[in-house]
Design a protein around this nucleic acid. Structure first.
Length: 277
DNA sequence: ATGGTAGACCTTCTA
């Protein structure tokens, strides 16, 4: 029996925005794979991490040919993030505020000028291993800076999507074998507390709004047959401000991308918003 | 027992 008030049918022209986030592990090594996936998945906005090149070596023409505007924050060899959008892009922020001497390219944020604008960030949070080196406190400082920025954005009461590779396994259910991660920076109590502190400012994890079961992973190591054994972890997230969460229509983890030719070790996470809501 | 793979690149670092 049909619902008495078929809301979707009554509103046939929904203003939807599809936002994807993907750690591509070198945009140049992955270019044919990434282009094929974009053509199939048709996101309006794509957040890439680990582009592993300077801005001048980013293959922007290939993406422009698919109809995307392109903004990058690159770095030689390591890290690097990018934003692609079929809508105009403005108000670009390159680099996470709060530590001017930090030269690692891990954050780009911009306003996506859809009929209802959405602020989107592409985030590559530091890995933090090994935990007995300076890398771990750097990760925690970076998390604190991200929390500070996220709090500022909330105050504007606009739709915001903070998307990327957070390098955090939040709960034991987010790892196939949590016992293998207990000494890893991704699963330390401080890391998980920082992720919760960020969420509890008032952001929704799109995974929790969606219907995917626990045991949905976004990363499988290249080593030791992790993919074949489904020894994965969920570390790629889309965090939505209340104004964006109100527009949530669905999300999907594109697990099939791990079986593509020359796959990244991460797969895309895709979120659909209905901005007409 | 300390593996295994992938990417950038000066030959080792990062993940």
């Amino acid at each position: 029996m049909a619902a008495p008030f078929p809301v979707d049918a009554a509103r046939p022209s929904l203003a939807t925005m599809r936002i994807a986030t993907w750690n591509v592990n070198s945009v140049n090594a992955r270019l044919p794979t990434v282009l094929a996936w974009l053509e199939a998945a048709q996101p309006d906005v794509a957040c890439f991490q680990e582009i592993k090149c300077v801005d001048e070596k980013f293959p922007r023409e290939a993406f422009e040919s698919l109809g995307y505007n392109v903004e990058t924050h690159g770095q030689k060899s390591y890290n690097g993030v990018a934003l692609l959008s079929k809508y105009p892009i403005s108000d670009v922020v390159r680099g996470l505020p709060g530590e001017p001497e930090d030269e690692q390219a891990r954050y780009i944020e911009a306003l996506i000028e859809a009929p209802r604008p959405v602020r989107v960030a592409s985030i590559y949070l530091p890995n933090g291993n090994p935990i007995d080196t300076e890398k771990f406190p750097y990760k925690l400082r970076w998390f604190q800076r991200l929390q500070d920025r996220a709090r500022e954005l909330l105050a504007w009461e606009e739709p915001v999507a903070l998307c990327g590779d957070y390098n955090c396994i939040l709960t034991p259910q987010d790892a196939a074998k949590p016992e293998e991660w207990v000494r890893d920076a991704l699963f330390q109590p401080q890391t998980r507390q920082a992720m919760n502190a960020l969420k509890w400012l008032g952001y929704a994890d799109a995974h929790e709004l969606g219907k995917e079961p626990k045991g949905t992973y976004t990363f499988w190591d290249y080593q030791a047959g992790a993919w074949q054994r489904n020894n994965g972890i969920r570390i790629d997230y889309a965090l939505l401000s209340p104004q964006a969460a109100d527009c949530f229509r669905g999300m999907e983890t594109h697990r099939d991308a791990r079986d593509m030719e020359k796959p990244s070790d991460h797969v895309p996470v895709v979120v659909d918003l209905n901005l007409g809501a």
